[in-house]
Design a protein around this nucleic acid. Structure first.
Length: 285
DNA sequence: TACCAGGGCCTTT
DNA sequence: AAAGGCCATGGT
């Protein structure tokens, strides 16, 4: 018996938008360390992105419900944010030429790379350095509640670079971000002044985009690659942290298979998720 | 080159 | 309950 692979479809149901047959697993996508403002509340994922609040959830049949939104907002905000126009079936087919990546995709194939706001991604991954996820979420939450525009319902937008650039290290003290506060301000000043144009980094040569970001104090190769991958749509970026480094060494003897090169960032998420799920086996090797 | 800087979460003791 | 490990980057 062969399953018929249906094409993704979108329809309106009352105030909701419903997505069927898409390769998207919300838990894996929203809680895998690429975004820090999504929270599972009674089975619904609620968060703020691109200046909008959203609750989204999966039905038992796999349909994904974007609650209380319009077709216009879905198309202009959530379709690009969830990277819904990219053919992940084709990505998985391509990376599956490598047997290990094929296995990883089997574990993690519901992950999509979120196309986040570039400033939010940059700022978030500066905060993420030398840090753990619960605390990253806390710092970002305090940043938004303290300085972001209220959106109603207790939700706050991520504060703009201009807003943050006007602050001081003392203003940021309540965030308890430690030594990262000065890095946040340096990034905000360079972005707000136009010295660094984040929008241009989605199409600039990769090396110069990375170099541009690394002019910011507190932005090294890892943070720069995260900002490019998650904020600028550069899916060829492959951020390497300690965990990915270890997994790469164990699984691939250090270098990513060539079939994954055009989608290295997506492959990275598959590998990370796979390594997480099979942690014990990897440590035993 | 090696180490420390904020800090809090996590695992181990 | 307490102690120690961990982390990405810049600075000494």
């Amino acid at each position: 018996m062969t399953a018929v692979k249906e094409r993704p479809s979108v329809r309106q149901e009352g105030a909701d938008i419903v997505l069927s047959s898409a390769r998207l697993v919300l838990a894996d996508t929203l809680d895998c360390g690429q975004a820090f403002r999504w929270e599972n509340r009674l089975g619904r994922w609620c968060g703020v992105a691109m200046g909008r609040a959203l609750c989204v959830y999966e039905r038992p049949n796999g349909d994904i419900v974007f609650a209380d939104t319009s077709p216009e907002i879905f198309d202009s905000v959530w379709r690009p944010y969830f990277d819904l126009d990219r053919d992940y079936e084709a990505v998985i087919e391509a990376v599956s030429q490598d047997p290990v990546l094929k296995r990883a995709a089997g574990f993690a194939g519901g992950i999509r790379i979120l196309r986040q706001d570039p400033w939010e991604a940059l700022c978030s991954f500066i905060i993420s350095q030398n840090n753990n996820i619960p605390r990253i979420k806390g710092i970002i939450s305090r940043l938004c509640e303290g300085f972001g525009e209220p959106l109603g319902g207790g939700n706050f937008a991520f504060p703009s670079a201009q807003t943050v650039a006007a602050l001081t290290v003392d203003d940021l003290a309540p965030l308890r971000s430690g030594f990262r506060a000065k890095y946040i301000l340096d990034a905000a000043c360079r972005v707000a002044s136009g010295e660094i144009e984040l929008d241009a980094l989605s199409s600039a040569p990769l090396d110069s985009a990375r170099a541009e970001l690394m002019r910011i104090k507190g932005v090294g190769p890892k943070v720069a690659d995260c900002a490019l991958l998650f904020g600028c749509g550069r899916i060829e970026c492959f951020p390497v942290d300690v965990w990915i480094g270890r997994a790469m060494k164990t699984l691939f003897d250090g270098s990513l298979p060539e079939c994954a090169a055009p989608f290295a960032g997506i492959a990275q998420q598959y590998i990370f998720h796979y390594a997480r799920m099979t942690k014990l086996q990897i440590e035993d090797l």
